[in-house]
Amino acid sequence: MEVIITGANAITSPYLHIWDWRVAIYLFLGGLAAGCMVMSAIANLRPGKSVAPDDPCCWRVVILSPIILNIGMFFLFLDLEAKHNMLSFYTTLQPLSPMSWGSWILLLIFPAMIAYAFSVIPAENREVLRFKGLIKFAEQMGRHLRLLAKINFAFGIILGIYTGVLLSSFAARPLWNSSILPILFLNSALSTGAATMILMAHKNEVKLFFTKVDIWLIACEIVVIGLLFYGQYTSSAAARESIMPFFTMSHEYFPYFVSIIALSVIFPLAIVLKFSEMAGEHSETLSLRQKLEMNVSAILVLLGGAIIRFALVYAGQLSKFTGLS
């Protein structure tokens, strides 16, 4: 077949390239923030013994998450072509547009995150707030810590799912248009959140707890990634086409091929490391080697999460409905 197209737009031809690293980073950081919200909530809500006050992760991560989310949204903002019309996001609610409720969710999440952040500041540290009003606010919030944690847990889940739905809602882009995508993104969000906890925690008890959590999450993640590709492969011709870049060893598809290889190394490696952390004696303080293992595996998980976002954002734009020509 010989095809000549006269009058094609560079932005959609030969394939879509509307979104780049900015959006990929947004999706990653959005997910990371979501994960942090959920995991920090878990830390603070753990039944029975409350590790909250005396392990820094339980409040540092909470304070970190709105900052992470903000940075993420900044990258999204960078991607908007008509920034001067920003406000029109909030003059309407488009019930069927993920991006529309996404923008509203982000708006609602913030107060909750801020309140939560204030609530977890340990009493002895509240002085750093200096202003009376703020200190008072922190005290009040402190009383509702558990409630705020629950709210943030819920919002975290929603945010995690949203970052996936954003892409999966585009029927025109077969790779994205999979109901597994939001689950993968949520899953990845949670695992990166757990990883952050591990990095931030001091108490090995806490580190070990989230290491256990992370093992499960990564295991799931590997399965879900498998399911995503399997689902595409067994679906329409276009869907099958859409995963080709990941399994084609060619110049133009090289990055995708590499990304799939990287993932299939990173996650198993992370798990292995984690098991070796679990094994062996655990005194009150962790040996340097254990610490190193834990942190390395945590960083691997974060890396994996980033790779997933980048690979899917770019590869999704290569995929299109067949039959166009």
Binding site: L16, E81, A172
Partner: peptide, 17 residues
């Protein structure tokens, strides 16, 4: 045009490019 923020969701959504 006065409402468009240039988010490009519509470009992604249009099966016809």
């Amino acid at each position: 045009r006065k409402k468009c923020v240039g988010c490009k969701a519509c470009l992604a959504a249009c099966p016809y490019d």
